[in-house]
Design a protein around this nucleic acid. Structure first.
Lengths: 208, 208
DNA sequence: TTCATTTTGTGATTAAATTAACAGATTTTT
DNA sequence: AAAAATCTGTTAATTTAATCACAAAATGAA
């Protein structure tokens, strides 16, 4: 009898993890669902429900005391696939690509960026400790077992995506502002600044 | 009797808009809900239901013919608040901030960045046509009626957020990797690369 | 014109997610 | 050590969202 974690719950896990890491950093040992509500804005009852998916063992949350920050982080990390150490590649080392690379905290998340590609020959070499190849060398230098690519380019997008899929990439984190199509079974996770601002502006304006 | 657009529907609108803009660019005049499904992966019946929220007038979608790409773009733009021209400020002009500023397509979204702030005196001046101030001058140079700030800094975060709220900022687009708290009524929209990769990695791995 | 085909729009239904309510466990106070 | 106060975990109720199924509208072909 396997517990299936619902989509909605899953999508909240990263939020919890982020908040909990911050708390751990501040030396907090225990946390209440109501405190997590304060920080995340997610209803406490929803939080408790979500966290039950982690408690294969008993004693996750203690009534009157809360949850152990460490246990939660461990549990979430496991479920979220932290420590998988999947190799990730980054396509496009412009301002945005550099920013992503610079903030390279992938250690404790899901893997790390093991190589970058750019169409500018001048960028070949190394950046923040990661090798930068020319995009023409994608097929030659493609890391084995790499399944995730971060796309931070603005040209030749569909062509690049096709090449990535041919190489076996299964998931694309999309910072592009254009649309492209992928084959059945390939996951795309868009990260869209414009959309974020739109949603935000909308919420603010709809309040009056 | 006012139609309330559900959260879920609302969250799909930016996806439609993006896809439709691409189609318009390619010269497409009409589009079927089934074609939008091909491109977005959202079920056609869900799409049709969503789009009914736009059709204040009749004739939005014609049976046997589909929807007018132009009409849809107009409708979505209106609902999404495009053309509001709200002034937006950007805090932090590092790699990430620069990337956001460079891709300044806010014209047809929701407003535009009218000023930037950074703690580095060397960055004062102008970048991509937008004035860059020192963060100390935030209060002096704050644009009137500005309600949205994009946060792309890694230090003094809570302090900066407090100052922004004092100045009347109502919404924050958060590229920060730390947690901060806001007063009641202030909206925060996190844009988190790490979380995106986590979700993606998870989907891929849960498939096997 | 008429008939077959396509495709929208929507009531009905099913599924998913959230919230409420509260029993039971644990801690703290007196 | 008993009583009061806190919190969790879970069942049930409610709300929200997705899907089905099909009538009605438009098109295009015969």
């Amino acid at each position: 009898m396997e517990k299936v974690i619902s989509k909605a719950t899953m999508s909240r896990f990263p939020t919890y993890l982020k908040a909990l890491r911050q708390m751990a950093l501040e030396g907090k040992k225990n946390v209440l669902s109501s405190e997590l509500y304060e920080v995340t804005g997610i209803q406490d009852t929803t939080i408790r429900r979500d966290l039950t998916y982690l408690s294969k063992d008993e004693n996750f949350g203690k009534p009157g005391k809360g949850y152990s920050v460490k246990h939660l982080i461990d549990g979430l990390s496991e479920v979220l696939g932290v420590g998988l150490e999947s190799p990730i590649i980054l396509i496009g080392v412009g301002n945005l690509g550099s920013a992503i690379l610079k903030y390279n905290r992938w250690q404790y998340t899901v893997g790390k960026i093991v190589g970058c590609y750019d169409m500018d020959r001048n960028k070949e070499g190394e950046l923040f400790g990661v090798k930068v190849h020319h995009i023409d060398d994608l097929e030659n230098t493609f890391p084995p077992d790499c399944e995730i690519a971060i796309l931070a380019i603005s040209q030749n997008i569909q062509e690049t995506v096709d090449r990535l899929m041919d190489l076996g990439v299964k998931g694309i984190v999309d910072f592009t502002h254009s649309h492209f199509t992928v084959r059945e079974g390939i996951e795309v996770k868009p990260v869209d600044v414009v959309a974020a601002i739109q949603e935000l502006a909308l919420k603010i304006h709809s309040k009056r």
